[in-house]
Design a protein around this nucleic acid. Structure first.
Lengths: 198, 198, 198, 198
DNA sequence: CATGAATGAGGCTTCATTCAT
DNA sequence: TATGAATGAAGCCTCATTCAT
């Protein structure tokens, strides 16, 4: 393949990466409706026209990013389940991933995107996202269920426990985004207590 | 004979009440930017113009409602603190109020309004709201602090414990709004465990 | 006639007078389009509804006032011409009336209304006003013409002289309105020199 | 290949020029409030939206034009003062510039813009414009003052003389705009007599 | 006579999207 | 690939006018 094509492809990928980063941050900070496309292009440092070469609408970019966030969440659970480790260890790893992600810029934005799903007008996609969101709770509930059998987790409805845990992480991500450096994340133990026996 | 002042005042109050109800619901469901004023007016059953007799902008109505939500939150804490009851009892009552509120339409909307503060463009008011939001966590942290002295609460930084608890309630309110009847709120015990000794 | 009716009629006249005064000031200060009817009513201290009892539109009030201003101008010329005095005396009296009027609130507003005719959308009336405005210059030109025959006035086209004089008075009224107390009206002699021999 | 920057700049400048021309004429003819933005756009032959690419509000365009008018006025005085000519010559040149400007479309509109300053709601800018307006009278007063020392100008307060002269020119510009071809401008001598000795 | 709530048309402004280059 | 001028629909807001009381 000629060298030029490769170079173009690289530029392409780089532009897309920057575009997604801008969109992610802006959608997370301001929501879908309050973010306008000119702002995304300006933040990315490209022209409006170029942005439309890559994504044919604001909603398309949003849906891509929201689904990517869900993919990452799903991948994390898959990875946890594929490991031959204790439930306690799984929850600890999950929390470590959360705590690490919240520190990183992009990480927190993905969390926020999952926690606040905006309607795009594309009902099929919107429903799919909500379903994926529920799914991630069921993923955690499965782990909690296992943990109850081994005695590692507290008793109670696994789904209720999982949803409370997820709700707490999402709420905390929101606080972190709003108050930034002024907000100190709680110790992991505070969160693990929701699921794990003392 | 002129229409009596009382009559006018009654009409005003009635319209304002309906307007606030519509605004509350729509802002909570869709956010500030995605809610349009035509929608609020139509939902209220009044003309667009009349809405501007009462509020001079969409943002003004939003700020009013968000501050009202904060008032209610503050009033709840004030009421809890004014009672001569145990910390456990206070937390239980707080949670009961939350659980009850989430069932009621208006109640859940107020919770959502607090949990997701949108920027209105009025920087002074936006900052005030964020400050009030932090304040409500400090209110709970004070109670937790007391509870640690009496041995009713778990150990750990009171603010971290309080924020995790509030984060969980806000996250749950979000789930409830998104999934409605399909979503079963967790048992109160799941939440109280975050703060109270077993 | 019953006493009551008289009383009502008096109130009516009083309200109308206040309404006209408010309209006059606001139209002069801000122009027709920038003045809104709510403002006129508020400035008058009456309700919107009552204002519509007296005038069925903003334009109607404006046209009434503009024509009144023209009436006053015409009356002044008629009065000057009915007197058996010298042309110099006529011009001096005209200027005295102008200087006196500019000091008084209502007076200056009438001058301004004449100098800036706004379009009301009623083409017939608009044209009539413009014609009356031209007429007042012809009135002065007639006096100047007389003065040239008696040698009191400077030579030159009477209409050109008259229009320059009127233009100066109108411009000065505008300055006075804009700068109020900070603006000192020029000495009458400066203006009379435009028309009269030294 | 991207469209060349030069090309874009040329398009911009052309559109801006047409926009300013339309705005100037309409503001001068009808005032700020009575001129609507749709009209400006239509008169320019562009869409409503495009106007907002260049000016973020009607008021911004108005302020730009009014300040440009003031610039031109100031430039004229600067140029007169920089020349080593008699006061009589300066006043004659000023008047020639006025007479010439009034014949040209754009010229008369600039005069009108200066003579009737409308409030834009931007108090700082409004005040600045009024100050500049006063300044132009002081500029002329300075020349009159000089002329009194050389015996070229009539006696009297220089500011009063200047303001009367300016008032007359502004009033005449208003007549010219209102009556157009039907209105014959007076001979320059009529105006110079206000300031210069016979 | 008097009120001001209520309406809706029309004006101002924003913004997603298209397109010629 | 890349640009930003240009559009138009849709949103926000104002305001003259009507009307029940």
């Amino acid at each position: 393949m000629p060298k030029q094509k490769e170079q173009f492809e690289e530029m392409r990928q780089q532009t897309i990466a920057r575009l997604k980063k801008s969109g992610l941050e802006l959608f997370a900070r301001k929501g879908l409706a309050a973010t306008n496309i000119k702002e995304i292009a300006a933040h990315t440092g490209i022209s409006l026209g170029l942005m439309y070469h890559y994504y044919s609408s604001k909603e398309e970019l949003y849906l891509l990013l929201a689904n990517e966030a869900m993919d990452k969440s799903q991948a994390l659970f898959d990875q946890l389940q594929s490991q031959d480790i204790s439930v306690k260890e799984k929850i600890t790893q999950f929390l470590a991933a959360f705590m690490y992600g919240v520190q990183k810029e992009a990480g927190i934005y993905y969390f926020i995107l999952i926690s606040q799903l905006f309607e795009t007008g594309n009902k099929t996609e919107d429903r799919k996202l909500r379903t994926r969101k529920l799914q991630s709770i069921h993923n955690l509930a499965t782990i909690v269920s296992e943990g109850q059998q081994t005695g590692e987790c507290v008793t109670g409805d696994p789904f209720e426990l999982a949803v409370t845990f997820i709700a707490a992480t999402q709420g905390l991500a929101g606080f972190k985004l709003m108050f930034k450096g002024k907000f100190q994340m709680p110790d992991a133990a505070v969160l693990t207590r929701i699921l794990l026996q003392a």
